[in-house]
């Protein structure tokens, strides 16, 4: 019950505070909220925008949740997502039938970055927060290098790639919207992850390693191997998010293409209390906020920053409600170096 209550209250708080902010900004709040509703959920197109925006948030939120449940404070979803975008573009713009492999390539790219962070953390004893955060910057600049260099469009005009080959584009399936099959992939990933984390052997081992690393070790679980698996699967999910974004929405790789989705996903995962089913709801909430604010910006001239501010309010209220459980999780930090 509480799992649902906290996000709803957080959303309400965002509405109240947001209304105040709109009035302060000299905007008619009624018109703004009408526009928000149309953009987020009151129209067919709005629902589509919410779904499309929620998709990478969901996949990255699942990525974060998987790592956090295993006790790994992996904040590398952003970098892994960028790696996915890079690989999807590299393969998807190729002038060959292999372009159809853009999505698997994205997943692999994300997983590879996850594996690199795992090596750093589990073998070299680098704190995982540091390892994953630093890789985010590496990947951010790798994208910059790519769109100015080897992946730049043939025309060499803008810092962007050529369009993704048509065979690699994700089919759309709701007329009048941008909804693509990647939405289904993300929902499927949530179902699979729910099964893995809550109902499988390795899920129990992950949760044991996260809740009590010493107990997991004494139990004889292969903790180090399990954490490697968690890192790699987390990377795979975030990489998939990047691939879906490129092949389903943008159709090209741009400079700074993510907009911080991988970081927002940490909030999504926490808002969903690290449970795959609740993360679906949290991602929808964030997706609706984003889509609705984009509509407000278009229709009534609200600044795009306000959307981010509303998200911030939602997170802050949630954290106030849930500070206890989250602090618990942060306190029991298992260091990868101790794992065997």
């Amino acid at each position: 019950m509480r799992a649902i209550f906290a996000p709803v209250l957080a959303a309400l708080a965002a509405v109240v505070v947001g209304g105040g902010a709109l009035v302060a900004a000299g905007v008619d709040p009624a018109a703004a909220f009408r526009s928000f509703a149309r953009g987020a959920f009151a129209t067919r197109h709005g629902i589509g925008e919410t779904l499309v925006t929620a998709t990478p948030l969901l996949l990255c939120g699942l990525s974060v949740a998987l790592s956090f449940r295993a006790g790994l404070f992996n904040i590398g979803a952003e970098g892994q997502l960028l790696a996915g975008m890079l690989c999807a573009t590299a393969i998807g713009t190729a002038d060959s039938p292999a372009a159809i492999l853009a999505l698997p390539a994205a997943a692999l790219g994300g997983a590879a970055v996850g594996a690199l962070a795992a090596w750093w953390t589990l073998r070299r004893g680098v704190p995982e927060v540091l390892a994953t955060l630093l890789l985010n910057f590496v990947l951010l600049h790798a994208v910059g290098v790519a769109v100015h260099g080897f992946l730049q469009e043939a025309a060499r005009t803008y810092p962007q790639s050529d369009p993704i080959a048509l065979v690699a584009r994700l089919p759309r399936w709701l007329d009048g919207t941008r909804v693509h099959v990647g939405v289904l992939v993300a929902v499927g990933a949530a179902l699979v992850l729910h099964h893995l984390v809550e109902r499988s052997v390795i899920g129990l081992r992950w949760r044991a390693a996260g809740a009590a690393p010493a107990a997991a070790r004494l139990a004889g679980f292969p903790v180090r191997r399990d954490l490697l698996t968690a890192f790699v699967l987390s990377g795979l999910l975030a990489g998939l998010a990047g691939g879906i974004e490129v092949t389903g929405v943008t159709g090209r790789l741009y400079e700074s293409p993510s907009g911080g989705v991988g970081y927002a996903a940490i909030a999504v995962a926490l808002l969903g209390r690290l449970r795959p089913a609740s993360i679906v709801l949290a991602a929808l909430l964030f997706g609706a906020l984003d889509a609705g604010c984009a509509a407000m910006e278009r229709d009534v001239g609200v600044s795009h920053g306000l959307g981010r501010a509303l998200e911030g309010v939602a997170i802050a209220v949630f954290l106030a409600l849930e500070a206890g459980p989250i602090r618990e999780r942060l306190r029991r930090r298992p260091a990868g170096a101790e794992a065997t």
Binding site: R199, V201, L204, R205
Partner: peptide, 27 residues
């Protein structure tokens, strides 16, 4: 001895032999 955040039933499986494999199996 225990993972305090896990259930009693799950704690009874904090033993590699008792939990068994394979990793992807269902519990």
């Amino acid at each position: 001895g225990l993972a305090l955040d896990l259930s009693l039933a799950e704690n009874l499986l904090l033993d590699a032999g008792a939990l068994g494999g394979p990793a992807w199996g269902t519990r």
